[in-house]
């Protein structure tokens, strides 16, 4: 009962006001930038397409929800969706999506912190590495990687491999009897045997604890399981992922989460503690870089379609919060299947794009 009232309070005190504020800001941005409110009848001037405002909010919601449930930001789904289905192919689509990718995971951050699915010891070095790498990435793009095609294809191959691995791990029966997955399955079975009709969920409020700090190693625990992580390696992973992601001009979550899930075998319920703060920091640095640093080299500033980005963010923040609240009901193998599917499709599109340019960007 206490849990239900806590969710209701979060919804009424935090989420609903945030949604209303972002919708008002979106409307104000439309009048400030264009002098009128675009939508389904009048085209957005920079995007040059007509899209109803409810569809932008829905697009933010579904991309925010499906990505936050696997610990990522909306960008990886939102960018190709906007460029293909919504036909927003103008150059402004990049800063507009960056705005959504920065604001949307904040809903997940608040949701997971309230669930106690946060651990700043775990997140710290990944995020420090991320901030450092994200500042270096754009300069690598301007110098060494002036033709990012082959590099992007290599990243695509790695992502496709990770995607296949995650899907295979989701279907592998042996995985379902051990670790968090085994525990989830056993407790769900026991719950059904007792005649409980509600779906089983990981009990609310179980924290991701710092069990011990042993020199350079950090031991974290969740629901009776433990993981021993080498902190300098966490820094290097954050640093490397951020350099790759910012050099390619994409978010870092879709690279970081498969590494944590496939290499470290961290459950999705735990890796969100590091991946959500990481994508927020990476997006913030990307917005700073593309607003202030890149124009110094290119001589021109690219403006976002602010109203579009803010309307999408209103749905995105709420969708990501809903993901944080419902993730513990979703079995780990479903989450792996989702993540594997998303990662694999993104990887295949990168490879295909190298040989046959796609009509949209990813």
């Amino acid at each position: 009962m206490k849990r239900e009232s806590s969710i209701k309070r979060e919804l009424l005190v935090e989420q609903l006001p945030t949604f209303v504020v972002l919708m008002i800001l979106g409307t104000a941005a439309a009048y400030g930038q264009h002098g009128f409110l675009p939508g389904g009848d009048v085209a957005f001037p920079l995007a040059q397409v007509r899209v109803p405002i409810w569809h932008l909010v829905w697009m933010g919601f579904w991309t925010g929800y499906t990505m936050a449930i696997v610990g990522e930001a909306a960008g990886i789904f939102a960018l190709p969706y906007q460029m293909s289905v919504l036909q927003f192919t103008a150059a402004s689509v990049t800063p507009t999506t960056q705005l959504l990718t920065f604001i949307n995971p904040i809903g997940a951050l608040f949701g997971f912190i309230r669930n106690k699915q946060s651990n700043w010891d775990f997140a710290l070095w990944v995020c420090v590495g991320g901030a450092a790498g994200a500042l270096i990435g754009p300069f690598i793009r301007l110098t060494v990687l002036s033709d990012p095609g082959p590099f992007k294809m290599a990243v695509g191959l790695a992502l496709a491999t990770a995607g296949v691995h995650l899907c295979w791990a989701a279907f592998r029966r042996a995985n379902r009897s051990q670790g968090i997955e085994g525990k989830f399955a056993a407790e769900a079975k026991a719950s059904r045997a007792q005649g409980v009709t509600q779906p089983f969920a990981i009990p609310a409020g179980i924290p991701i604890e710092t069990v011990a700090k042993e020199g350079a190693y950090l031991v974290i625990g969740f629901w009776g399981e433990r993981w021993r992580l080498h902190q300098p390696t966490l820094f290097l992973i954050g640093f490397g992922v951020a350099i790759c992601a910012s050099a390619l001009g994409v978010g870092g979550g879709f690279l970081l989460v498969p590494i944590f899930a496939a290499v470290y075998a961290l459950p999705m319920y735990v890796l969100v503690a590091a991946s959500i703060p990481f994508v927020i920091i990476l997006s913030a640095v990307a917005i700073f870089t593309y607003t202030f640093i890149v124009p110094l080299f290119s001589g021109s500033t690219l403006y976002a379609e602010f109203a579009w980005g803010l309307f999408a963010s209103a749905g995105g923040v709420f969708g990501a919060w809903c993901a944080a609240k419902t993730q513990r009901f979703v079995p780990q193998h479903f989450l792996k299947l989702m993540l594997g599917g998303i990662t694999g499709i993104a990887g295949v599109l990168y490879v295909v794009d190298f040989f046959h340019p796609l009509p949209f960007r990813i």
């Binding site: 389904g40 829905w58 929800y65 419902t326 979703v330």
Partner: peptide, 30 residues
């Protein structure tokens, strides 16, 4: 309470609705 048993499948339900809305948008606005 009746819809609670659908919670584990929610990500797939949301994706399915997204496909329907995308098809509607393509039909009306393209």
């Amino acid at each position: 309470k009746r819809g609670l048993h659908l919670l584990p499948y929610l990500p797939f339900i949301v994706l399915a609705i997204a496909v329907v809305v995308a098809a509607y948008h393509i039909r009306v606005y393209w």
